[in-house]
Every structure is written in C-alpha cells, then in structure tokens.
Design a protein around this nucleic acid. Sequence first.
DNA 1: GACTTCATGGAATATTTATTCCTTTTAGTA
DNA 2: TACTAAAAGGAATAAATATTCCATGAAGTC
Lengths: 292, 292
Amino acid sequence: MRQSNASSATGQVGSLVLPKSVDALHTLIAEQQEQLSARLKLVSVYLVEHPQQVAFSTLAEIAKAAGVHASTLVRFANHFGFGGFSELQKLYKNQLLEHPSNYRERISQLKKASGNNQNTTPTHLLHEFIDGNQLALSLLQQQITPELLDASVETLLKANEVFICGIRRVYPVATFFNYTLSQMDVRCSLIDGQESMQAEQGKWMNRESALIAITFNPYGKIPRETVELAKKQGSKIILITDSELCPLAPLVDHLFIVREAEVRAFRSLNSTLCLAQTLCVALGYRKQDVGK
Amino acid sequence: MRQSNASSATGQVGSLVLPKSVDALHTLIAEQQEQLSARLKLVSVYLVEHPQQVAFSTLAEIAKAAGVHASTLVRFANHFGFGGFSELQKLYKNQLLEHPSNYRERISQLKKASGNNQNTTPTHLLHEFIDGNQLALSLLQQQITPELLDASVETLLKANEVFICGIRRVYPVATFFNYTLSQMDVRCSLIDGQESMQAEQGKWMNRESALIAITFNPYGKIPRETVELAKKQGSKIILITDSELCPLAPLVDHLFIVREAEVRAFRSLNSTLCLAQTLCVALGYRKQDVGK
DNA sequence: GACTTCATGGAATATTTATTCCTTTTAGTA
DNA sequence: TACTAAAAGGAATAAATATTCCATGAAGTC
C-alpha cells in the first residue's frame, strides 16, 4: 500500500465515506451499480455473491473467478475509496471473524431464550417458522411415496388441460401451479369460485383433463363442489390435503397428504409449495422425454 | 516454498502420510499432543480451536494470535510433514470451500451437483427441492437481521393501509400476503397490474400507507413503476428481492434480500413465503400489544 | 472519419508474506 | 556448575502477492 488515502488521483471517487462493513459496502455497490463499467459490474456481482471466497482468496484467484484482471479489482477498490483491494478485502475478513460460522450457537441461544415463550419478537417468530418448515419438509420427504408422485405426473402428462382449484388460504398454491404449469406449456386454468362461478369455470373438465384440488381443513364448499363436478364429468383428480379424513379423499385418483408446519396456530404452505414445485418440474421433464 | 518434500532435514517426522483433510490433521495432532513441545502445543490448540481464522489469516497474524513466533508455525507444519505452513493452511482453506458455513455456497453446489445429473424422477426432484429449500431456509435465518424485521413490522403497524405488489413468479407470495394480512384485520389491496392498471391501483398510496413489493430478477416493469409511484406519493416501502443489485433497492425504506433455493434452474419461493409469514404473524402480535 | 475519453489488460515494481538459517535461550543431565 | 541437546526467536532471504504505470483498444462525440 503506497498510499491509502481515499479520493486518490485515479479520479473516480465512489463516495465520501468509505464503507466500514460488508453490508455498507454492498449497499454502496448496489447504489452505484448503474454507473459502473462492464468489468466493474462483474466484480460487484462476484463480491456480492461470493463474500466467503473474497475473504480468503488472493487477488489473482478472485480476479480469475470473477473473470477480470487483477488490476480491475484494485481499480474497483479505489473507486469505492479504498487505498487498495487488500483494504476492501479486510472488510470481508472481519465479517467472518465477527459473524462466526458457529451459527449453531445462535440457534441454541435463541431456543434457550424461547423456552417457555411469550417471546413474540419478529426474529424469534422467524426462527420458529424456519425450524417448523424445515421439519415439515423432512417429513414430506418421508411421507410422499415415489409411486404416488410418478402416477400423478403421468396423469398430468396425459391430460390435455389441467384445472386448478384452491381458494383462500391455499390460493397462493393454486396461483403457483397456474403460473408454473403455464411456463411449462401446459394448458391450465384456475377455478377460484369468484362470484360463485365454480360450476361455469369447471364446465370444461372432462375425461381428457385433470383437476388439481387443494383444500385444507376447514374444507370449503368450492373445492368440494369442484371435485364432485370433476368426478361427475370423468376428469382425473389429484387432491392435496392435510388429512386422510378429508371428505373428498374417497373420490380422487391421487391423494397427497401434506403435513404443514404449524407454529402458534398459523399453518405454513411451504411443504405444499415444495410438492407443487416438484410436480410441475417433474412434469416438465416428462414432457421433454415424451417430446423426443 | 523452497522445498515441499515431507520428512525434510529438520528431522522430526510426524507421520509417514501427510494428512489431506483438516479432520485427519486434527486427529493426528490429538494423537501426538503429548509429544509436542510447549510452543508447538500452543500452535496445535490454536489450530484446532480457530480453524476459520487459520484459513484466511497470514502467518504473522496467526503467529501473534497463537502467541508464538512465525517460524514456530513453519516448524509445526514441517513436523507434520508439510513443506511449509502455507501447505498446511491450504487444508483449512479447502475445507471452507467444500464445507462452507455459507449456505449460499452449498446451495450453488447443490445446483452444480444436479446440473449434469440425468436423474429426473419425481422422487429425486422432490428430494432435491427439499434439500434446497431447507438450506435456503437456514440461509434466511442467518441473513435477516432483527433490526430489519422489527423496523418493517413497525412500518406495517403504523400504516393505515398496506398495498402489495407482486406479479408473475412471485404472485403467490403477493396473494399470501393479501390473504394473511386480511385475516389479521389489516386493510390491504393487491397491485397486480392487470390490464396495466397499476397506476390506478396504486393511486391511493400515500404517507399513511405502506407498500410491500416483491420482485425477483428479471425485475419487471410493474413493480418498478409501483415502487416509483409509492416513493413519489410518500408511502413507506418494503422491498423483498433477491439481490442487493436490484435497481429498486435504493428507493426503499426496508430491504429484504432473500436467496431462494435454485434447483435445476427453478427457483423456489419457500424462503420468501416464510419471511412473509413471519412479517404477517409478527404484525398480528404487535397489533395485539398495541390494542391492549 | 478523426479526435477524445475512458476502460482494459499486460508488465514492471513495490510490498507483503513465508521460509530458512543462524544465534540465543532453555531445560535436562552428569 | 558445566555440558549437551533441543527449542525458540531474530533477521536475512526467497517467494508470493498486490499495486502502479503504461500501451492498447473500444466507445462516444464533433
């Protein structure tokens, strides 16, 4: 380091204050993103996405990984007011020192703090939801059988149109299916029972089509009527629900039971969404196979 | 590194095979612990207890931290068969690269692992998605700060109306917010840009209201215009996005960066949804507090 | 199309960092 | 206490690494 003054002769001065934390730096980078040159942009993307590597790699290594020349890194650092790249790198190293990898510790601290909890801080809730959702996902892994998945995907593959019924609490799942299937070139339509139009919306269900119905306790009227209609019209039915006791269960061709995390009486949608994603992507791959 | 042969002239040869992982090294260290000299013992303790630091500090820094002279470190490395300390240090660096505490890295590894994988059975996909989502959730845990959460919840609490903007891929998240906030007795409305009505839909945003915008790369026009409108009209803005580099980031009051799992180029929504859930439920609790 | 300006990569140079060698210190033994 | 052997620290030196400077090339302007 020959000189470590900001606003050096190089001209470009990123800012008047030099960031003293990785977060601050990233914010600054984000702000200036547009004004950066192509290579400098590459650098910024690399820094933001690989902070860990930045912390303990050498200039040359980082340069190579980011796809730029070593001097570009130095210029980048200068641009943001650092005397050299090493100075910038120090930020990343410090972050690792302060924010240690033992985040296990953080969890157990949190758990301790929550023992018998009136603890409803947002952070605490976040951690509870995360824990709950992770657990629910593990459960999903155990409970969904390959046969059921395969068969459902085949049904969707054969259908010339897919109807999706999910309202209220599970409406996000329905919209997820709708968007993702559309992206996969699957003709699909949403039955949301708006203005009690479920019968009209489901009118075109038939032996060639499939219905994906999602309904959780308390099971509502719209999905029930839709499933019954589908049954009557000979459409294949895939039901995603939360219990074998769902009254619609006997009617359907493929039955998914998903146990969602429930934290403080709020049930999540994570596992259902994960299942939905799997069905869509698996269908996408199958379509490719068949297309060939 | 002038010579990198094990069992150099220095005399002491720790072992015949030179350890190729940190774990192997630590085992070896533990075995030989008793036979080490005072200073070398200091070194061993430091290495075992601060593997992270060892990975990215310089010889001199480590020496100082461990309370020994630099050359002692080199001797230590030699003792265990390394040509120099750098060689030993490489083990620690590699460990960080392979086993990163950084979930981002693990996620991209997962991506890589499945990249050329032809195994696209639904079950296999399900497991990939579950793994990816679990990792992403852990990352969420690490990256969302309490301050940000608290501040966002306060903003929502103060707002007399909450607008929600999320379309296409993140539309399920928007509908989730919409439903859940409604359940919490929060007045809210969805800006979905249907028929290019975003300006009309956002017309009533003002200083008393808050906007929750969700947009992921590629950042679309509707969220951008909505955020800009909100800014102009003085509404508070909470942005949920996937990178600091999102061009809207500088405009907003609260910025959430969520790294979603990406499996076979399909990005998930799990973490975003989990965050959404947290915000809603935390807000619910806060409203209760205030109500009292 | 010529000119200017800025960005880029290469190579020389400065700086930092690691390693070796040698001297001093320490501990053990007669 | 004197001697020996091993260990530790210091300083010189070698190696690696970062930084600067400059030539080249690209983009924009008149």
